[in-house]
């Protein structure tokens, strides 16, 4: 589906910021071929922004099509920066490697459409502070009822806690389950079974269990 909104994302952002005073929105760029940019809302005003997205007569995002979770682990990126510095009395241009540390966080991504105005999708992101204790985002179930089960799924698989959700329980895994299977650092229980053609991770596991590529015991 092509992105067809009456307004550009910048206009929508300005409209929302005017309607919800204090709200801080950010447009997240997308380098992939789809170039589908998204709106990042801060948690404090997320509910008000969502309500505005649904109720504003020019926006009318009345249909929530999808809620997904994204896990962003801690990551360190290196960047080469050219600087001019005085070395032995001579000013030279040198390259320095600068490390950027970005603490990890979890993200809930909402895909919104307007059935009335035939526009969409608008992608709304909410971020948690970190992947540990501060893993809360506000639930948008009060705005779009359809978010209920999908937010439960994101809670189940990613461990995003949705504040204000009417019934936040695990939905796919059982209640006593402790892990979050879709997180990048999830390690599944080690119950290896013979594989005729092991490869990649399975090959590693086969080697740990004393069985190599040729199935040697």
């Amino acid at each position: 589906m092509t992105f067809c909104t009456v307004e550009t994302l910048e206009q929508i952002k300005a409209r929302l910021e005017a309607a919800v005073p204090g709200a801080n929105l950010e447009i997240i760029a997308n380098d992939s071929p789809s170039v589908q940019r998204s709106l990042l809302a801060d948690n404090e005003y997320a509910l008000a922004i969502a309500r505005q997205l649904r109720d504003d007569p020019e926006l009318r995002f009345d249909y929530l099509s999808n809620v997904s979770g994204v896990d962003w682990p801690d990551c360190t990126t290196t960047e080469k920066v050219k600087t001019r510095e005085l070395i032995e009395g001579v000013e030279r241009e040198i390259e320095r490697t600068v490390e950027h540390k970005r603490p990890g966080f979890l993200e809930a991504v909402y895909h919104l459409y307007s059935v009335q105005l035939r526009q969409g999708p608008l992608i709304l992101r909410l971020r948690t502070q970190d992947r540990g204790e501060a893993n809360q985002v506000p639930s948008l179930t009060p705005i779009w009822r359809g978010a209920e089960l999908q937010e439960r799924e994101a809670f189940d698989l990613f461990g995003i806690v949705f504040d204000g959700h009417p019934d936040l329980r695990r939905i796919l895994m059982w209640d006593g389950f402790k892990d979050f299977p879709m997180r990048k650092d999830f390690s599944e229980p080690d119950d290896y079974e013979y594989e005729p053609t092991p490869h990649d991770e399975v090959l590693e596991r086969a080697k740990r269990h004393g069985q190599g590529a040729a199935g040697k015991t």
């Binding site: 059982w174 209640d175 006593g176 389950f177 402790k178 892990d179 229980p189 119950d191």
Partner: peptide
């Protein structure tokens, strides 16, 4: 039975 990480016992 449902365990914390897997079924108990796994087989």
């Amino acid at each position: 039975e449902f365990g914390e990480h897997d079924l108990e016992p796994p087989n």
